[in-house]
Amino acid sequence: MARRFTDANELLNDLLDRYEGGAASPIAHPDYDAFSSVVAADTFLKQIARAEEAGAVSLGMGKGARRDQIAHVRLRAANALYGHLGRVPAGQLAQDAGMRLVAGLALDGRLVEAIPSITDAWGRGKSWHGFGASDVNKLRDAFALAQAILDNKHLDVDYKTFSRRTVGYSKTLEHIEGVVVRLLNGILEFPPGARPREALRTIGLERFAPPLLIAGRIDLDGADLSRASPHYLGITPKEADRIRFREPPTYVLTIENFASFNRHIAEADPGRLGATMYVGGYPSLATQQALRTIAGMVSECTPLFHWSDIDPDGTWIFHTIERAVGRPVRPHLMSVEIAERFGAVSSKKSAPARCPPESGIAALAAYLAKEDAKTLEQEELDPILPLPFSNE
């Protein structure tokens, strides 16, 4: 569709915008029907005539009765038009912004690899994932935060304190967490379906670690909780080493969903035969460390299970826990057979976990990689005890 203008500066800048976007010889048209007055039209034409005199544009005239009227304006010489408008070329702006972007930052080489694509986009007058050349300071903060994460400066520090210590303002990370994750993606392993804040949780960066909820025949240090008979116990993940099992659990089960966690301990295991823990979606680094601690308290003969949604995210959560505890984990109510029987093909496609053949979730991950694979939310299933303690 032809581009039509009543403002000469807008027309001339549009020619340069499209030139910077890759158009070799863009053209634009006066919008004679939209001029507010004869004076406005005359002013427009005089401004275009001055650009022609500068050698910046060429004019195409109409035909027939309109042969004395400008039909279109074509870019003739970009440099001349830049000079005529007093406009700095996007390539120069991009080069200058690119230098300011990294000046004084000691960056990991893998972060540096992202810079050419950023300056290339800016050089074409485009933004890079919503960041234009004028946003160089914000993007510089994103690089600084990403580098600080690679330097492990985020560990044992809450979200806002990490942001303040790194870039001087506590809310900066909240505003640009998406681009920080984008810069780190491919360097660090993030679950592909996770939102930026969830992804950062998995590497230990969060506001404050959520409580670890655990149900079972447990005490806390020397405190006897047998008479209290709590529904479950909530502690900070760093206090996991204070847990004491009054009796060895027959199994250990981690559960992604809060409703399923509550239903399991109330309906499937009211006698607390096992130790059941709620991991809250993608388990934070603190939660992963707590699971490793608790797994080390039980016998190697005690089976470990995990129950998540039957979908790619569920396989990522499973494999994350599997790696965290450093011993075999079995899927609970997560199988190809259950998916085929109760699930439905999802319109949302994402990659399942990349896991070795010996992983407990390998078979389900391979199944979910297929186009016609079915998925199922765990809330759709009634809780039962894990094998071999039930008739599953």
Rank of each mutant, 00 (worst) to 15 (best):
residue 367 Y to M: 00
residue 360 G to S: 02
residue 343 G to L: 07
residue 362 A to Y: 00
residue 353 A to K: 06
residue 364 L to D: 01
residue 360 G to D: 02
residue 347 S to V: 10
residue 355 C to M: 12
residue 363 A to Q: 02
residue 338 I to M: 05
residue 339 A to R: 01
residue 365 A to C: 11
residue 359 S to D: 07
residue 361 I to L: 11
residue 353 A to G: 08
residue 361 I to W: 04
residue 359 S to G: 05
residue 339 A to M: 08
residue 343 G to C: 00
residue 365 A to P: 10
residue 346 S to V: 02
residue 347 S to I: 11
residue 342 F to R: 15
residue 354 R to K: 14
residue 356 P to F: 05
residue 342 F to T: 15
residue 365 A to N: 02
residue 337 E to A: 07
residue 345 V to N: 07
residue 344 A to W: 00
residue 338 I to S: 02
residue 367 Y to I: 08
residue 344 A to F: 07
residue 351 A to I: 13
residue 341 R to E: 15
residue 358 E to A: 12
residue 361 I to C: 04
residue 341 R to Y: 10
residue 356 P to Y: 03
residue 355 C to S: 03
residue 352 P to A: 02
residue 353 A to N: 06
residue 362 A to G: 06
residue 350 S to G: 12
residue 366 A to T: 10
residue 359 S to W: 00
residue 338 I to K: 00
residue 349 K to C: 06
residue 353 A to V: 15
residue 349 K to V: 12
residue 355 C to P: 05
residue 340 E to N: 13
residue 359 S to N: 14
residue 341 R to S: 14
residue 361 I to G: 07
residue 362 A to W: 02
residue 342 F to W: 13
residue 338 I to V: 12
residue 362 A to D: 09
residue 350 S to W: 06
residue 352 P to H: 01
residue 355 C to D: 07
residue 356 P to Q: 04
